[in-house]
Simulated scan of single mutants.
Amino acid sequence: MLKLSLQHRRFTYIVSHMDNNQNALDAVFHALADPTRRAVIHRLGSGPATVSELAEPFAMALPSFMKHMRVLEGVGLVRSEKTGRIRTCTLERKTLAAAERWFEQQHAIWASRYSNLDNLLEKLQGEDNEA
């Protein structure tokens, strides 16, 4: 129970500080850089799953797969609960949403830059036509 409490506090800290904490965002992107971990996140997007269910599609030993799960849990993307001998994992959507906000901010910046470039090109083409 104490371990779950510590994990919950770490998750709460990561989510509440992600927008202002570049290191937390870097950790999330590092976790998502691996195709195995992205596949796990994709699978958990459709609902909770046991570790065995998550590990099944991968050709690796369970201890190796658990390293991936620890990375995902460590950055707060996944939460797991153990009932008896079964560990069930769920996606922490708030952490994923924080990374998504970063992408949305980048999209807005680049959309604005492209709009400014379009305006400049139109202005320059208008000046060429007048000359």
Score class of each variant (00 low, 15 high):
Lys82Phe: 01
Thr88Cys: 05
Thr95Asp: 04
Lys67Arg: 15
Phe65Thr: 02
Leu54Val: 01
Ser46Asn: 12
Asp26Lys: 02
Leu44Asn: 09
Trp102Phe: 13
Gln105Lys: 14
Asp118Asn: 12
Phe103Pro: 00
Leu32Arg: 07
Met60Glu: 15
Gly76Arg: 01
Arg113Gly: 08
Trp110Pro: 00
Ile109Ala: 06
Asn116Lys: 14
Gly45Leu: 02
Gly126Phe: 08
Lys82Ile: 14
Leu96His: 03
Leu25Lys: 01
Cys89Asp: 03
Ser46Trp: 05
Phe65Met: 02
Ala55Met: 06
Asp26Cys: 02
Ile41His: 01
Gln106His: 09
Arg79Ile: 09
Thr95His: 05
Leu72Thr: 05
Pro57Ile: 01
Ile109Asp: 12
His30Ser: 11
Leu25Thr: 03
Val71Asn: 03
Leu25Trp: 01
Ser112Lys: 11
Asn119Asp: 15
Ala31Gly: 03
Ser80Trp: 05
Arg37Val: 06
Cys89Thr: 04
Ser64His: 10
Ile41Leu: 04
Lys94Tyr: 04
Ala31Asp: 08
Asn23Leu: 13
Asn119Ser: 14
Glu100Ala: 11
Arg101Ile: 02
Thr50Trp: 08
Asn23Tyr: 10
His42Asn: 12
Phe103Lys: 06
Ser112Tyr: 06
Gly47Val: 12
Arg87Cys: 09
Glu92Ala: 11
Phe58Ile: 01
Val71Thr: 15
Asp118His: 11
Pro35His: 07
Thr90Lys: 12
Val28Cys: 12
Ile86His: 06
Arg70Asn: 15
Thr83Asn: 13
Phe65Cys: 02
Thr95Arg: 05
Phe29His: 06
Thr95Lys: 03
Glu81Trp: 08
Ala49Leu: 14
Leu54Ile: 01
Ser115Pro: 00
Met69Leu: 14
Arg79Ala: 06
Ser46Cys: 02
Ala31Asn: 08
Asn23Asp: 14
Ala97Arg: 14
Thr50Asn: 06
Leu54Cys: 00
Ser46Pro: 00
Ser80Tyr: 05
Glu122Val: 13
Lys67Leu: 07
Val75Glu: 03
Leu124His: 07
Val28Leu: 07
Trp102Leu: 15
Lys94Trp: 04
Leu96Thr: 13
Val78Met: 02
Phe103Trp: 09
Val75Cys: 15
Asn116Asp: 15
Leu96Ile: 15
Ala24Ser: 14
Arg87Leu: 11
Tyr114Thr: 09
Ala49Asp: 09
Cys89Pro: 01
Ala33Phe: 04
Val28Gly: 04
Ala111Ser: 15
Glu81Ile: 13
Leu72Val: 04
Leu32Thr: 05
Trp110Ala: 09
Trp110Arg: 13
Ala108Met: 07
Asp118Pro: 00
Ala98Asp: 08
Met66Ile: 11
Lys94Ile: 05
Leu77Phe: 11
Glu104Val: 10
Ala61Tyr: 04
His30Cys: 05
Gly74Asn: 06
Phe29Ser: 04
Arg93Met: 10
Pro57Asn: 10
